[in-house]
Amino acid sequence: MNYLKQILAFYDSLELNPLNSSEIALWHALMSINNKSAWSTTFTVASSVLCLRSGLKQANFFKTRNTLQQKGFIVWESRGGNVAAKYQIKVLYHDVSTNSVDSSRDNEPLSTYSVGTSRDSRIDSSRDNSIGSSRALNKHKLKQNKKETSNSNNDDDERKSLFEFYQQEIGVLSPLVNQELDYSIQDFTDEGTSEQETIEIIKLAITRSVENNARSWKYTQAILSDWLKHSLFTLENIKASQNQHSSYSNQPQNYDIAGDELPY
């Protein structure tokens, strides 16, 4: 499965087949687990793990899962008793080539991947539903990536390195933070910055957050917003601005992070 094509197709589909925030969060949680399974055709995961990753409570989880299946986003199958359910994520995009690797993978009987040891009946209901975002979750789609098809694999690798860097420096990459990172990439590429340089800019913002003892996406996002506000769209301009600031003050630069609280 091509992760970026799947994300774009998902938000395209929301225009005609809308989902609420809980359903979007659960779909992203399933995508994250399927990604870790190297896109196995089917995989198993305990409901407790999905509740933790999506921020859903037990009372809402089963209804949300059924809705995703009814609307054609996933297929799930109960295996009886307290055994974790089996899932399959439906591929939402269509390649031009009828012999595409993605479509052939969908038809192959790959082994099932299992996540978590928790039983379905032991759902952790202590987790509050902390789904929220400073940007509306009803953004129906990301703008089309203007890179050539031949560069799509490189883009995947670059984004993967960013996600890994975030988890290493700040912490767990929730589905919502994953989506916010995509939006931040789009913000800079819309200004003419290449995706590769944009990813390095976001990594720099993450590093600045760590240096200021503010390991959170909220602080990192504030740094990025400040650079955009001051039309700093390249690494060279950003570093030049920071050097100029340092020449006037040895104090760390403060960023305005007032506003709605983010759950990460």
Rank of each mutant, 00 (worst) to 15 (best):
S152Q: 13
K86R: 15
S133T: 05
S97Q: 08
T193D: 03
T41A: 11
I257T: 06
G259V: 08
G80R: 13
S133V: 04
K36F: 07
I33A: 14
S130T: 07
Q221A: 15
K141F: 09
P263G: 13
L14M: 15
T98D: 09
S47C: 08
L162H: 02
S13L: 15
L173M: 10
D102A: 14
N250P: 00
L181V: 05
K141M: 06
K229M: 10
T193W: 06
K139T: 07
S97D: 11
T98R: 14
S114R: 14
A46G: 07
L4I: 14
G81N: 08
E15Q: 14
S48D: 10
N138C: 08
I238L: 06
I33Y: 11
L8A: 11
E195S: 14
I89A: 02
N35C: 11
L50I: 08
E148P: 01
K5P: 00
D187P: 00
S225W: 06
S47W: 07
K5T: 07
A46V: 04
T42L: 05
R208K: 11
K218D: 02
L228D: 00
F62Q: 12
F43L: 10
Q144Y: 03
L204A: 05
A136I: 08
D102I: 02
Q242C: 03
S125M: 03
A38Q: 12
N129W: 03
N254G: 02
D106Y: 06
V115P: 01
F43W: 05
L173F: 05
Q168M: 09
L110R: 10
Q253F: 06
I7N: 02
L4H: 10
S130A: 08
T44M: 12
V83W: 05
A205D: 00
Q196S: 15
E169Q: 15
V177G: 00
D120P: 01
T234R: 08
E23C: 09
K147W: 04
V177F: 03
Q242I: 06
S21C: 07
D156A: 14
I131H: 00
F62V: 06
Q88C: 08
I238E: 02
G80Y: 09
E195I: 11
Q69P: 00
A205F: 05
Y248S: 10
D190R: 13
I199W: 06
L56D: 01
F165R: 13
S174T: 14
Q179W: 14
V172H: 13
F233Y: 14
V96E: 14
H245D: 07
I199Y: 04
T41R: 15
F163W: 12
I257H: 05
L224R: 04
S40Y: 03
A222D: 01
K141I: 03
N138S: 14
I199R: 12
